[in-house]
Simulated assay, not measured.
Amino acid sequence: MSKRGVCSRTEAARWIVAGRVTVDGRVVRDPEFPIAGTGRQRIAVDGDELDAAPRFYLMLNKPRGLVTTARDERGRDTVYRCLEGASWQGRPLPWLAPVGRLDQASEGLLLFCNDPEWAARVTDPESGPDKTYHVQVDTVPDDALLAAFVHGAQHEGELLRAKSVRLLRAGERNAWLEITLDEGRNRQIRRLLAAFGIEVLRLVRVAIGDLVLGDLAKGQWRWLTADEVARLQGRTENLGR
């Protein structure tokens, strides 16, 4: 059901266990029940048969302070607040899942889609696009320290490093860096800099591959073009809604 853009995997599991879902007219209560990839099986929720949803892809300028999840057990605001009231051709959007994450204190470019296969290609650590961040830190690093970020450091038993780092601008006590990653480990930049005793003051994701945040206002979103969708997964044929 999540692949058809109806809901999240977690919500789908709840519906299935509650007996709200049927496959070919039979109630299924096992969330791991196998479904053929041909799309010939009839899946219904509360008696309403599901149709495959069109594919949707969008980018959001995530504000700081929002959690990248559909439902937060601590009651914090989530990124879905920015999508409230969103529609397409006068109809509410289907379920869209975040493609990767930004932690609560981070901001910037965040993708959403209802295409799990595309999302998996975009987030693949081996073949997915690089991610670029602008990061304010509480020190002014010299060239040796910038090189050390690329060389990497052990943090909590894990080797963390950046693909590239450059100094954007510096003040007396802090500086802005541009950091590019070619993998997406949890809180990777914050943990890498912590290994050198450096605190992150602000962290903004400004690009994924060649898709840049640009002048999209904070808290606003826009559709991806078919060309952008294709390029993010390393393909050139037209894809999209």
Rank of each mutant, 00 (worst) to 15 (best):
V122C: 14
V122Q: 12
V122E: 11
V122M: 14
T123M: 14
D124E: 08
P125F: 08
E126C: 15
S127N: 14
S127C: 15
S127E: 15
G128D: 06
P129S: 09
P129E: 06
Y133V: 01
H134S: 08
V135Q: 00
V135R: 01
V137K: 00
D138C: 06
D142E: 13
D143Q: 13
A144M: 13
L145D: 08
L145V: 10
L145E: 09
V150H: 15
V150R: 14
H151A: 15
G152H: 09
A153K: 12
A153T: 12
A153D: 03
Q154C: 10
H155V: 11
H155N: 09
L159R: 13
L160Y: 06
L160W: 04
R161P: 03
A162D: 04
S164F: 10
V165N: 00
R166C: 07
L168V: 11
L168A: 01
A170N: 02
G171A: 00
E172I: 01
N174C: 05
A175R: 00
L177H: 00
L177C: 02
I179D: 02
D182H: 08
E183P: 05
E183N: 07
G184K: 05
R185Q: 09
R185A: 06
N186I: 05
Q188W: 03
Q188D: 05
I189G: 01
I189V: 09
R190E: 03
L192M: 05
A194E: 04
A195F: 02
F196Y: 15
E199Q: 06
E199A: 12
V200R: 02
V200L: 05
R202G: 08
L203Q: 06
V204A: 04
R205C: 10
R205V: 15
V206A: 12
A207P: 09
G209R: 07
G209P: 09
D210P: 12
L211H: 10
V212F: 10
L213E: 04
G214E: 05
G214D: 14
K218H: 05
W221C: 02
W221Y: 07
T225E: 08
T225N: 08
E228W: 10
E228K: 05
E228V: 07
V229P: 10
V229F: 09
V229T: 14
A230Y: 13
A230T: 08
R231K: 13
